[in-house]
Design a protein around this nucleic acid. Sequence first.
DNA 1: AAGGGTGCCAACCGCCAAATC
DNA 2: CGATTTGGCGGTTGGCACCCT
Length: 347
Amino acid sequence: MGRPPCFEKYGIKKGPWTPEEDIILVSYIQQHGPGNWRSVPTNTGLMRCSKSCRLRWTNYLRPGIKRGNFTDHEEKMILHLQALLGNRWAAIASYLPQRTDNDIKNYWNTHLKKKMNNNQSNDNNHEDVDSEGKTRSQPLKGQWERRLQTDIQMAKQALSEALSLPQNPTTFPQEMKPSSSFSHENHPPNAHINIPSPYASSYENISRLMENWMKSPNSSAETIFSNNMQVTTGGSSSSEGAQSTTQDHHHYHLHRQALDSDLFSFNNSTKSDSASRFRSTHEENDSLTKEGLDLFHQEKRKINMETHVPLTLLEKWLFEDGVTTTHHECNEDLINMSLEESTSDFF
DNA sequence: AAGGGTGCCAACCGCCAAATC
DNA sequence: CGATTTGGCGGTTGGCACCCT
């Protein structure tokens, strides 16, 4: 037999998400936590498939997501991890908790792939032009990959070199270190993320939105949203959402910024300590519900049991798996090499 | 100013493994 | 144990915004 058929076959809506839909989804996740996506469309009335809801949450609405330009360091990490793991964007994204796999994939396809091609075409001179037009030496890119493919011993050495990135503790966010990347106990997710926000001046509006939202969790999202954000919602079809005015876009970004607020500090429970964030943020919130606490304890137990493995193990798994699947012809020596040793400088 | 080309990115598609009945 | 659903992943696409001529 199998599972009962899901509701989502009827009248599935596609296309860009509207602010109203976002509000509904976030509101639901706020109450029930991420997961059990099958029930989300049914319980919220969203005419979206569960898959779409999950993607919207993980790629856009989930708090703690860093958007905008990739830093030089992030770019290097992506390049190195891509060389190690191949196009396993989810695995790569697990090393960059603030970035989504979709984000990294897009960045790779639009920027890095091009850059790699340029590097290969300019192979003879080991110089590269960065985004600011400045010339800098790039001895690792390309060279590292070629050496990896040709000689295991050389590859070992090259890997060590590649992983020995320039040490710059001041520019390396705390949460990106593996030992702490899954621990935000004392750090609200956005507290130390330096987002160049054009919406800072509207912080009060956001605060009001969140305040009212928390006070009236049962009121309709549309009412809350229209009262606080004054967004023209109209018919709220996807096409209309996509055709909103510039002002609407501005408000939409305010809304988006609000969703990033610490008040909703869940994280994807399969990849990080959503429970820790959930607790740390909700403990500071007077409107914390008993339901929320129960959820937190459930989440924490689940995470402790299933997903919160030491990162060194995760690294090993990623490394070994990546090597065995992408470079299986030369995997033995690489597997024998201790990743912890070779990455000690990397992080 | 207009039209075509290009870049970017959110969202979709299809596949697969795991879970469930 | 097989059928079915769900969740996750990587690849791809559609449409908007920007740039160039």
